[in-house]
Amino acid sequence: MTGRRVLRAAALAAVLFGALPAGAVQPDEMLRDPALEQRARELSAGVRCLVCQNQSIDDSNADLARDLRKLVRERLLAGDTDQQVLDYLTARYGPFVLLEPPKTRSTWLLWYGPFALLAVGAAGVAAAAALRARRRAEPEPLSAEERSRLEALLSDEAAGTNEDPR
């Protein structure tokens, strides 16, 4: 058993679904004030657990996640607004810590790309439809070759075959 293999087996978290069994927030972490606690939960759900793969600190039972959950609650108790709490975390861990990427120049494409794509797609479909409608309005005269093919087809049809003309 090589070290790499053991590592690989250990790292093999799951085939598709199989994160660590979560159950993150502990009763003793929770704030007395239900409104504040609710804010803490909502904030935590948007903060990435840095040592986990792809979970929020609200979903993760990693140690650091627990520390950050506590930190979020302390900041709220100290009177921070939601934005201030997120800024505090971002100042230490960078925008990576936010599961909702901030709208900055570097995420402009991320945020507006899909809608731009939809607009371009809609315009494309409209243009294609208009083009086809116009083409239909002014049918091009058949070339000599096309005419002869058409005649051949019509005679085929008359003969009762339905073979694909091509």
Partner: peptide
Amino acid sequence: EKVSVGAPYFEAT
């Protein structure tokens, strides 16, 4: 730059 794209993004788009 490192950013995370999580559930809130997909919910919004």
